[in-house]
């Protein structure tokens, strides 16, 4: 059971929040299944955007294909629903044409790391100013529950009936290795922490990747014997992760096998659009 938020914290939290300000209310209810974590992540994203004080017309929300990629349909920003895995190239194009715009990419784990794996590493390499939110539910939900690049070893999916034998990717490690300058992880369970992480990612100049763990109770949950969405959130997100701030204070046995949560990597590096603009200016002056 969760403990109530203390009075001191309560003053800082951003709810009740007027979500209708950013939603297309006639598009609701959304298509996500009962208990799907994507809705929780969407709400955290909207609160973070509000906190960052961004103008609605100055945001472009780009997505690929998949459950998570239905997000732009429900929000009242400039939205683009593109090809499977290709959200990042479209977003790169928008950012190059309109560097003043805040470009946010919402993508699933399969969309970002399997079908669009090469685009993901190259966006990170360029350090172009995009905020990439990877909704990691460890399964391809929209097409019927096939295993994805982040499905844990032994997980049952419609394409791994006897357990998954492929070791999973660690999204944050890939992003870090490929050159992203802001890498963080959040979960749908720790929703206020997620809001803070997304807010920090939006403020960062350069490619910021936030890996967000959320639950797919319909496919992953049912096939892997989770009782409910709540059970998934408690076992996978609450007990399966440990905050990066606490990891040094905890004994080794409480940290073993758990994923780190929080801001994992943050450095400064020249941003792609700025470098490109300065090169153009330099050449235009005939240097």
């Amino acid at each position: 059971m969760s403990t109530p938020v203390s009075a001191e914290k309560k003053e800082k939290i951003s709810v009740p929040f007027d979500y209708n300000k950013y939603l297309r209310p006639n598009k609701l209810p959304h298509i996500w299944c009962p208990g799907c974590g994507h809705g929780i992540v969407l709400k955290a994203m909207l609160r973070a955007i509000d906190k960052a004080g961004l103008e609605k017309d100055n945001i472009a929300l780009v997505s690929g294909i998949g459950c998570s990629s239905r997000t732009p349909g429900y929000v009242d920003f400039n939205t683009l629903h593109t090809l499977h895995g290709r959200a990042l190239p479209f977003a790169t194009g928008i950012k190059m044409a309109r560097p003043d715009m805040k470009v946010i990419v919402v993508t699933g784990d399969g969309d970002a790391l399997a079908i669009g794996g090469n685009h993901f590493i190259h966006a990170c390499r360029r350090n172009i100013d995009l905020t990439v939110l990877v909704f990691t539910n460890a399964v391809y939900g929209m097409t019927g529950g096939q295993y994805s690049p982040t499905s844990p070893l032994g997980a049952i999916a419609t394409t791994s009936r006897y357990g998954n034998v492929e070791p999973p990717f660690d999204t944050c490690e890939i992003a870090k290795a490929a050159g992203a300058t802001f890498v963080a992880r959040g979960t749908a369970y720790h929703t206020l922490e997620l809001e803070k992480t997304i807010h920090e990612a939006l403020a960062h100049k350069g490619t910021s990747v936030v890996d967000i763990l959320d639950a797919c109770p319909t496919y992953f949950g049912r096939m892997n014997k989770y009782k409910s969405a709540t059970h998934m959130m408690e076992t996978m997100e609450k007990d399966g992760t440990v905050s990066v701030k606490q990891v040094d204070k905890l004994p080794a046995d409480k940290v073993q096998g758990k994923m780190l949560r929080g801001v994992l990597h943050k450095i400064e590096r020249p941003e792609y659009c700025e470098q490109y603009a300065s090169l153009v200016q330099e050449k235009a002056q005939g240097k």
Binding site: S2, P4, V5, K10, I13, V15, P16, F17, Y19, L23, L28, P29, H30, W32, P34, G35, C36, G37, H38, G39, I40, K43, A188, Y189, T191, L192, M233
Partner: peptide, 19 residues
């Protein structure tokens, strides 16, 4: 109700709010 807002924060469907 203690107005802790956990129901609002974790509702995936925009269905509940506490004022």
């Amino acid at each position: 109700c203690t107005r802790c807002q956990l129901c609002d924060l974790r509702c995936p469907d925009f269905a509940i709010q506490v004022f």
